[in-house]
Computed example of a mutant assay.
Amino acid sequence: MPNDSKYWFPAKRYGWGWGLPTAWQGWVVMTFFGLLLLLGALFLLPSRGETVFGAYAALLIVLLVAVCWAKGEPPRWRWGGK
């Protein structure tokens, strides 16, 4: 049975936020995010313009941060150490 307490996104060693994924689920999320961003650039930019694409990208970023917040280590400012 998989370990549900394992974080998909570890906290950064320095600063605030998350680093690269450590679980395959996190890599799927990052790949899906990149793919959706690329598809938006290919289809929304030429047909709808920069404003619509900017709103689309902002929505994707908010969703990515929500997933990181839910499945990552609790964020706080870090100065290194353990």
Rank of each mutant, 00 (worst) to 15 (best):
residue 1 M to Q: 01
residue 1 M to W: 09
residue 2 P to R: 10
residue 3 N to F: 02
residue 3 N to S: 01
residue 5 S to G: 03
residue 6 K to M: 10
residue 7 Y to T: 08
residue 8 W to I: 09
residue 8 W to V: 00
residue 9 F to S: 02
residue 10 P to Q: 05
residue 10 P to Y: 13
residue 10 P to C: 08
residue 10 P to D: 10
residue 11 A to S: 12
residue 13 R to E: 07
residue 13 R to D: 00
residue 14 Y to M: 13
residue 14 Y to W: 11
residue 14 Y to N: 05
residue 16 W to H: 04
residue 17 G to A: 01
residue 18 W to Q: 06
residue 19 G to E: 08
residue 21 P to C: 09
residue 22 T to G: 03
residue 22 T to A: 02
residue 22 T to W: 07
residue 23 A to V: 01
residue 24 W to A: 08
residue 25 Q to S: 04
residue 27 W to R: 11
residue 28 V to G: 05
residue 28 V to E: 04
residue 29 V to D: 03
residue 29 V to C: 03
residue 32 F to Q: 12
residue 32 F to L: 10
residue 33 F to S: 01
residue 34 G to L: 15
residue 35 L to H: 11
residue 35 L to F: 15
residue 35 L to G: 00
residue 35 L to N: 08
residue 38 L to H: 01
residue 38 L to M: 14
residue 39 L to V: 09
residue 39 L to M: 10
residue 40 G to M: 12
residue 40 G to C: 04
residue 40 G to D: 13
residue 41 A to G: 14
residue 41 A to P: 11
residue 43 F to L: 14
residue 45 L to E: 15
residue 47 S to K: 15
residue 48 R to Q: 15
residue 49 G to T: 02
residue 50 E to W: 15
residue 51 T to A: 15
residue 51 T to C: 01
residue 51 T to N: 11
residue 51 T to G: 12
residue 52 V to W: 08
residue 52 V to S: 13
residue 53 F to K: 10
residue 53 F to Y: 12
residue 53 F to W: 04
residue 55 A to K: 06
residue 56 Y to T: 00
residue 57 A to Y: 08
residue 61 I to M: 13
residue 61 I to R: 02
residue 62 V to K: 07
residue 63 L to R: 11
residue 64 L to V: 00
residue 65 V to C: 05
residue 65 V to I: 14
residue 66 A to Y: 00
residue 67 V to K: 00
residue 67 V to H: 15
residue 69 W to A: 00
residue 71 K to Q: 09
residue 72 G to P: 09
residue 72 G to S: 10
residue 73 E to L: 02
residue 73 E to C: 07
residue 74 P to I: 12
residue 74 P to M: 12
residue 76 R to G: 15
residue 76 R to M: 12
residue 76 R to N: 09
residue 78 R to L: 11
residue 81 G to N: 13
residue 81 G to A: 05
residue 81 G to D: 01
residue 82 K to M: 05
residue 82 K to F: 09
residue 82 K to P: 11
